[in-house]
Structures are given as C-alpha cells and as structure tokens.
Design a protein around this nucleic acid. Sequence first.
DNA 1: TATGAATGAGAGTTCATTCAT
DNA 2: CATGAATGAACTCTCATTCAT
Lengths: 197, 197, 197, 197
Amino acid sequence: MTDGRTRRREDTRQRLFVAAVDLIAEQGFSATTVDDIAARAGVAKGTVYYNFESKTVLFEELLRHGIGLLTAEFRAAVDGLPPLEALGALVRAQLEYIRRYRAFAQLLLSEMWRTNREWQQTLRLLRGEAIAVIADTVQAGVDSGDLPADLDVRTASSALFGVGLVVAVDWLVFSPERPIDEVQESLLGIVRRVART
Amino acid sequence: MTDGRTRRREDTRQRLFVAAVDLIAEQGFSATTVDDIAARAGVAKGTVYYNFESKTVLFEELLRHGIGLLTAEFRAAVDGLPPLEALGALVRAQLEYIRRYRAFAQLLLSEMWRTNREWQQTLRLLRGEAIAVIADTVQAGVDSGDLPADLDVRTASSALFGVGLVVAVDWLVFSPERPIDEVQESLLGIVRRVART
Amino acid sequence: MTDGRTRRREDTRQRLFVAAVDLIAEQGFSATTVDDIAARAGVAKGTVYYNFESKTVLFEELLRHGIGLLTAEFRAAVDGLPPLEALGALVRAQLEYIRRYRAFAQLLLSEMWRTNREWQQTLRLLRGEAIAVIADTVQAGVDSGDLPADLDVRTASSALFGVGLVVAVDWLVFSPERPIDEVQESLLGIVRRVART
Amino acid sequence: MTDGRTRRREDTRQRLFVAAVDLIAEQGFSATTVDDIAARAGVAKGTVYYNFESKTVLFEELLRHGIGLLTAEFRAAVDGLPPLEALGALVRAQLEYIRRYRAFAQLLLSEMWRTNREWQQTLRLLRGEAIAVIADTVQAGVDSGDLPADLDVRTASSALFGVGLVVAVDWLVFSPERPIDEVQESLLGIVRRVART
DNA sequence: TATGAATGAGAGTTCATTCAT
DNA sequence: CATGAATGAACTCTCATTCAT
C-alpha cells in the first residue's frame, strides 16, 4: 500500500495539486492549460491524465482536498471551547489557513460565488460542510445567550465566512506588508462588537 | 444622416455589453465565447469585432463602464453629507448598485483579487477610483473625530468595499429570499459600531 | 459622357488603382485587404464595391490597364525602326516603364510565373500581347539576317521579357542608388552580343 | 525509445515541408491554408501546430531549408575550380536545382523581390548567403583577369542569380517541352560572352 | 455617387484528450 | 508509472461582400 510505487505516485499527485492551485488562482480555471500545469509540476502532459481522469476532476479533487483541510482546521479550532472563544478561534484559523494556502484562498474567492460552472455542486456541498462548523458555533452562542436570540444563524455564518475570506485575501493582495495580527485584531474586534448586541 | 448610424452603432454596443456581462458573470471570461456573446446580443459574430478590437478589449471597456457607474453613484451618494451619514450612504449605494447590476457584481468579485490577468492594470486603476471616494469619506470622518484617529484609512476603505461586495453577492446567491433591508441594516450596524470605537 | 459625375468616378477609380497596385506589390494580392485599399485611397470601403464588382475584378482590371500600357509603349518604341535598333528601343522602353511603375513591375514579377491563380488566364493573355511585340521584332531580325537563323523566337522573346523584368526590379530593390543608364547599358550590351552570334 | 519518437516527429516535419512548398508555390503563402497543408501531408491540423509555432514560422523554416540546400550545392559546384569554369558550374547547379525543386524556385521568384512581408529579413539574409558564393567566384574572376576589372561584382552576382532564376522558371512554366540542355547552353553562352568583355 | 455598419464563412490557433511506446 | 506525438473540436479573429441610408 505505502510501497515505493504508491509513494511516488502520491508525490506526483501532490506536485500536480500544488502546480494547479497556483496557476488557477492566478489565471482562473479555463485560462490554465493542462500543459501549464504539467510544465510547472515538472512532468509530462500525459502524466496529468495518468493521475487524474480529466482537468475538471483534477480541479474537483483539488477543491475537495483544500476545503476538507479548512473544515478540519475549523473543527480542531473550536474543539471544547465555549461559544465566544470558539468564534475567535474560527477567525484565527481561517486567517492562518488563508495565509498558508494563499493561492487556494484566491481561487475560492473567485469561484465561490459563480454560477453555471461544472463543479458547482461539489463546491456548494463542500462550502456547506465548512460553514456548518461555523453555524454550529454560532448556534451554540445563541443557545447560551452569548449571541442575540434573533440572529439568523445561517446568514450570519455565511457572511462571516465570506467576510473573513475577502478581507484576508484583500490584505494579502493589496497590503501584504501589513502584519497579520492587525488584520486579525480588526476582524475579532468586529465580531466581538456584533456579538455584544 | 450620421446620427442615425451613430445611434445604431451605440445601440449595438450597448446590447453587446449587456450580453457579455451576464455571460461572463455566470461562466467567467475565458469560458465565455464570442459566439455566446453575439448570440445573446442577437447579432452576428463579426459584429462583435466590428465594435470592439478584441474580446479582451470588450471586457476592459465593460469594466470601465461598470466601475465608472459605481464610482459616479458613490460620488452622488456622499455629496454634501457629514462623514457618518456619508458612510451609511455609501453602503446603501453599493447595495443598490449590486442589486441592480448583480451580474456585474459577481464578475467583480471573481476578478478583483486575481493576479496575472491581462486587464489587471485596468482593474486596479478603476478599483482605485472607486475606493478613493470611500477613502475620502473615511478620512473626513477621522479628521472630524467621528472615526478613531489611528484608523488605517486605506485598509479600512479597501475592506469596506470588499465586505460590502461579498456580503451582498453572498446574499443574492445564497439567500435571495431575504429582503435587502435586513442586509443593509446588518451592514450599517456593523459600520456604526466600528465607527464608535 | 465626360460630365462632372463621370470625371469624379474616373478619379475615384484611378485612386483605387494606385492604392491597390502599391499595396499588392508590397504584400501580395491575398494579404492586401479591401479595407487597406480603401483607406489608402481615402474612400470608404463601400466605394470600392461601388466602382468594382469584386476584389478580383479590381485586380484583373489593374493587370489589364498596366500591361496594356506596357504593350502600347512597346509598340510605340519599335515603330518604324530596323530590327536591331528596335530591340534596343524595347529594352529602353521596358526599363523606363519599370522605373515609372515600379510597384506594378514588382507585382508582375511576383504573379507572372505562378500557377493556379484565378486571374491566370487573363494574365497569360496579356503577357502574350506584350511578348508578341518583342517576338515580331525578333522575327524581323531573324528574317533580315541580323539575328541567327536558328534562334527559337518564342523562347528568346519570353526570356528577354523576363530578364528585363528581373534585372530592373532587382536593381530597384537592391541597388536603387545605381544610375539606370548603367543597367540599361549592361542589358543592351548583352543583347547586342547575343545578336552577333 | 526516444529515438523512435524523434524519428517519427522528424518524418512528420518532412512531410509538412513537402506539402507546404508545393501548395505555397502554386497559390502563394496567404492563399494557402493550414488545412490544405495538413490535408496534403496526411496529418491533422493540430499536428502542424505541434511541429511549428505558426504558419509563418513553418514558411521561414522552409525558406531556410530550401535556400540552405541551394547554397550548399553552389559551394560544392565551385569547389576547386578556376573562375570561368566555376561560373559555368554555378549556372549548371542553379538550373539543376530549379529543375529538381521547381515548386520552391517558383516560390522564391514570387517572394524574393517583395517588400513588407514578415519573413523579409530572413529571406534577405538567406539570399545574401547564396549570392555570396556567386560573388566570391566573380571576384576571383576579376582578380585573375578572366572578367573585366571594372565589373560591379555585387550587382553582377545579383543579376546572375536573378536571370538564372527567371529564365529557368520561365522555361519550366511556358516551354516545359524544351530540353534543359538548350536552356543551359543559352545561359552559358551569354555568360561566356559577357566574360570575354 | 458614396458611405459604413453589419454579416458569416472561413482563416489561424489553442488545448483537453488519446494512445503507442 | 510515465511519456510526448498526434488529434480534432472549438476557439478567437479576419475579411470580402451586402445593403440601408
């Protein structure tokens, strides 16, 4: 199972993932060619098709992989924490994630609110899983009285996710020199104020 | 004589704009073909090229047109208002705009934070003009003492623009049944709270 | 017949001829667009079609006009002259013509030995008329004993025409600083030597 | 392993060369489509672009290949010969070449004296290399006293090249039934007579 | 007599995908 | 497990031609 061949193959897949995410973040899915991906990964074009059924499938697995990671970090962040602290931990986790996987975050920002794309179903589903963690935390806050009782949990969670994404990416693209702590503080400050209502 | 011709041509360009913005918002620039655009506009393919140098130029003029409109509405909104009220007016104007030109807003959200695209220069420039109106208002608020003196005006304006965009589009895509007033209230509430700091 | 309208139209046709001959000489027939021709002639594209049935017809009339002129000058040159002097006069006439209508000469050089072109029939016919004047002169020289009796009149005339064309155009393109008299002398010298055989 | 592939690819390129030269000679560069070339070579259209950057590049490599061959034959022809004999050898070599690669010769005749074409730089350069061999021979003849001391070497070489081309192609197009030896004799006769001056 | 907006067939080019090696 | 030559459908763009003004 984890013999030489499997490891080699896993390595190739990993390099293709990295190459694809960078290029698609920069140029978008359609503008990124399989040739580009293979070249940046340092393999032949045929190798892409040996490892993935198609360009679309490669992209879908990429989304699955990336958002799965984010969801896992969300779950780890809130584990055992009381609602308000958990909310802060989520913001921190999202920022950390975006900083580490900047290209993937850009890609998400570009694709998340599109319509009529092949992988839309997949994306909505994955988005739902990530936001569910946020929603659970928000719901817990409402139940415990830490958050206003009339809060629309679904919309608030959705907005929280989107705001974190856009603010962090905006920071990375337009003010990369600004320290992340400031950004984190601003976001946490806003969340706390909203919570207090 | 020349007037009839000019009017006809202007009409054709307008229809191409409308067709292009819808399709590109849904599918992205690369995935949208010139054939699609021509078909939706109800003209022949050659007509697209008679009116625009290239697909890229059509898109750039589209960006210019759309963001120009937004900037104009921003300017009209803040005209003569004191800082805090002006800030509220900006939020309202942005939401109104996004509701009216939903497709264009989606398109902006998808392209604004990308790198390495042909029209990036154009986009950055236009974004700068729109954000300048916000920045002027924020700066006035800082000067008047309505906003915290240590506020990073540039970053705050940038974030305000991004948050408005992502929240409004998220609402249109994922909770279209929710009345816009609520969204507006939420956003205004957040802005006011931040202002009070 | 020669009223205002006709004169204006004739003027437009003339300008289109001049524009077309220049452009086609430089770039070839296919690479020259009707837009190019109209622009250089300073008229609208529709005007080309108002004056000529099609691009091909414009070109054919151009060939007819240009080679007709050359043939006429050939006829005028040899008129009344004894064979050997007539031969020299032909060389001079051809060089004069090429110098005056350089672009047309280039165009001829490019198209004359092509096969499978639409206007080939026309071109062969016109070429035949021009070469007939040369052939008549050569034949007269053979008959009078000034030229060798076993000379293949047809081939010799054909070659004379081609050599004149290629040497003159080569001179115009690659050694334009060299005076025409030298070129003429060289050519006449060769012809005279061949004649003496 | 790699050898099999390389050979296959080289084979494809060769077939594309042959197909392209025939078609372009007949119809000209612009009038020849990539579809035509692919069809005659018996490959798919995409294969043309897998092997050549563009239609223009294919044509440039074609020119390079064809004129390179001619230059090589010129060099082989004059090798070790005294000036006058070398001159005769050049004429023979040129005629042989044109007879063998008739299509390429027609193409050269059509393109050589054009201006404003993309590959002009390339063509001038290659023409220079071929004519340099002639010029060296002519210069040797001048130095040895076999040719007139006041001969303009550059112009004479240029003209010799052009005359050989136009006479040979004229013969192939308009009198293909005439044996090549006669043509060769005529040309050699002229050259010898000029030499005697 | 002249115009120029519009057209659509067809050109050059790209690229996801296949497959023999 | 990996390769890269070949493919052909689909793309962007061009341009000779038409026609209402």
